[in-house]
Write a protein that binds this DNA or RNA. Structure first.
Length: 398
DNA sequence: CATCCACAGGAAGGACGGGGGT
DNA sequence: ACCCCCGTCCTTCCTGTGGATG
């Protein structure tokens, strides 16, 4: 009896597809970064003063998502640190995850070995502690701030200004910054002083083209999958889809991994084009479900109003129309509505999340408004709303 | 050519709950 | 025990605006 169980378990746990699935996960930093030799070289050159215990220039790194900015930076900094570990300390902060000034400082301090409460003290106090701590340190500190465009759009460049000013305040230059951004136009939002200070050096990461993506996928696939599980056609398709999406290597690797997972679930021996297509749908569905189900209450209600309104009118809605439907829904379940001003912001938030599209239009005599439309699969939205929120769910019956 | 629509979106601030410091 | 600070969600009040219309 136990043999049967063992057999089933082992047949379930032994993948016929993946040799090592982890190599396809987004935060895996590979040992080789093909087609980024140029950027690696530049980065090492700029950081080379560290070898002499001097502070390198600050660096600004531009490039769209999935162009290897993060991987290259992490890779180079880590390798350098392995070589000359006593001459500098580094901290990597993703400012999309660590998305408040407070938490950035808290993270930095924790990196330097201070324990910091989640919350409770003022940002100014944290800043003081940070300066004090840095002054106590001998080595140079290298701070990597990833995705700072997202952060600055949300909170402004205040901490950036203060952090870059820290060198002056301390009377000696001990901190080097590496700023990474997805948005090239973002620099214009910066205070000129921060801008000039941060971009002493610049490195640009161009998108990968389909050919390069293919090469990257191929190399990764030979390590991640068993031999002859993945055909060139499958690689080509993944590369092509990602290339269309501004050469996003992360997207391409995700696609390949999920396609592998789909194939495994189906008990297939090889990856097919069909698996890739299913993977594409699945990735999108998961993303939408995740985003929608964690939305605040009124955001869900607004979203539902958009779904209902678009169904009814069979066209895009204006902000006013959305608000009308929304207030009716709110009344039906007996909750207070938020103001139209707030709904306007919620619409923008949903747009930013890619759940809806909202375009500002001027219709002359008929005013200025937004044209709102659903941008994702309706069923997924309904499912995400109704499974997590019975109150809102009761509004959906047909 | 001025008007005026239907909002956009900035500024300031408040209620509230979660989490400190002392 | 009491005060302080934070982020989140929201309100109030506001000025700005492109172009169809009279």
């Amino acid at each position: 009896m136990s043999k049967i169980i063992d057999d089933i378990l082992s047949s379930l746990s032994r993948s016929r597809i993946f040799r090592n699935r982890e190599l396809l996960l987004p935060d895996y930093v590979p040992e080789e970064l093909p087609h980024r030799e140029e950027q690696i070289k530049r980065l090492v050159e700029i950081l080379s003063p560290l070898m002499r215990g001097e502070k390198p220039n600050n660096i600004f790194i531009y490039g769209l998502t999935g162009t290897g900015k993060t991987a290259v930076t992490k890779f180079v900094v880590k390798k350098l640190h392995e070589k000359i570990s006593n001459s500098f300390i580094y901290a990597y902060i993703n400012t999309r995850q660590t998305d408040t000034p407070y938490r950035i400082l808290a993270d930095l301090l924790e990196n330097l070995g201070s324990r910091v409460p989640f919350t409770g003290i003022s940002t100014a106090e944290l800043y003081r502690r940070f300066i004090k701590k840095v002054l106590e340190l001998k080595p140079i500190l290298v701070i990597v701030l990833d995705e700072i465009d997202a952060f600055v759009k949300k909170h402004g460049d205040d901490i950036l200004y203060r952090l870059t000013r820290a060198n002056y305040e301390m009377g000696k230059s001990k901190i080097s910054f590496i700023g990474i951004t997805n948005d090239v136009k973002f620099v214009d939002l910066l205070d000129p002083r921060v801008k000039s200070s941060l971009s002493e050096e610049e490195i640009i990461f161009p998108p990968y083209n389909a050919e390069e993506l293919e090469d990257i996928l191929k190399r990764r696939a030979t390590l991640a999958f068993y031999n002859s599980v993945v055909s060139d056609d499958v690689i080509k398709l993944c590369a092509a889809i990602a290339a269309r999406d501004h050469g996003d290597a992360r997207r391409a690797l995700d696609l390949l991994r999920v396609a592998g997972e789909v194939a495994e679930r189906e008990g297939a021996e090889k990856l097919t084009i069909e698996h890739v297509n299913k993977a594409r749908v699945e990735i999108e569905r998961d993303r939408v479900y995740e985003v929608v189900s964690t939305l605040p209450f009124h955001s869900k209600l607004v979203l539902l109003a958009i779904v209902i309104g678009v169904n009814e009118k069979k066209r895009t809605l204006t902000t006013g129309e959305v608000y009308d439907v929304y207030t009716k829904l709110a009344k039906k379940i007996g909750v207070e509505s938020v103001t139209q001003r707030r709904v306007s912001d919620i619409i923008n938030e949903l747009d930013m999340l890619g759940i809806i599209t909202a375009r500002v239009v001027n219709r002359g005599r008929y005013g200025k408004t937004k044209e709102v439309n659903l941008a994702v699969n309706e069923e997924t939205v309904i499912k995400a709303i109704s499974e997590k929120d019975s109150k809102v769910a009761s509004l959906w019956d047909r």
